[in-house]
């Protein structure tokens, strides 16, 4: 085995272990903050797997979008809503668990079927384009994948407008969750007084 192949094998093993253990941690850990940080680790390792597959542009996009935007946003939301609150016990927890388990297993069997039926071997290793892939992705986005690309952008625009309407304080005069009149001051100002009055 040459050095390059050995390195690749070691990298693949480490990355896949991190992905599997990290993903299990995201689901099983009690602390939501740890879950969110582990999710970032999982995203990073997936980007590493893309790098091993010679898809450097996809890897960088994965880091930029999933780690830099999605994961930061999740952590941000968790930390802004830093409420210590006991969760109410759910009555029909057992039937819910059965349903979610069956859905997960259906998805898993679908993935396994794809894995077994697809032909994975490339026609020849020389067909990989490597650094050219950025140009190729651009060409595809503006020719045969133009419609999905545009539809996705419209979807994002709708989400953005919705978020702005929800967040703007002059659109809604009442807080949605509490029903209290909305504070029109600085965002950073706490809605409850920090220091209670002494008298």
């Amino acid at each position: 085995m040459s050095i390059a192949i050995t390195t690749q094998f070691i990298c693949f093993t480490v990355l896949s272990l991190v992905v599997i253990i990290g993903a299990l941690g995201v689901v099983l850990l009690e602390s939501i903050v740890y879950s969110a940080f582990l999710l970032g680790g999982v995203f990073m390792s997936v980007a590493g797997l893309y790098l091993l597959l010679n898809a450097s542009f996809v890897a960088a996009a994965q880091v930029l979008v999933y780690v830099g935007a999605v994961n930061v946003l999740i952590i941000f939301a968790i930390m802004l809503v830093n409420k210590k609150e006991d969760l109410k016990p759910i009555n029909d927890i057992k039937s819910r668990r059965v349903i979610s388990t069956s859905i997960c297993f259906t998805l898993l069997s679908l993935l396994i079927r794809v894995d077994l039926t697809n032909v994975w071997s490339l026609s020849s290793p020389q067909n990989s384009i490597g650094e050219e892939s950025t140009i190729r992705i651009g060409e595809h986005l503006f020719s045969d994948y133009l419609l999905p690309f545009e539809v996705a952008s419209v979807l994002l625009l709708m989400a953005m407008i919705g978020a702005i309407v929800l967040a703007r304080r002059d659109v809604m005069s009442k807080d949605i969750s509490t029903g209290l009149p909305v504070d029109q001051e600085l965002i950073e100002k706490s809605s409850e007084p920090l220091l209670t009055n002494k008298n």
Binding site: M44, A60, A61, V63, L64, V67, G68, A69, N71, I75
Partner: peptide, 11 residues
């Protein structure tokens, strides 16, 4: 690559 890497920092 730099733009992607610098987005890790806030975490």
């Amino acid at each position: 690559l730099w733009i992607a890497l610098s987005s890790i920092q806030p975490i």
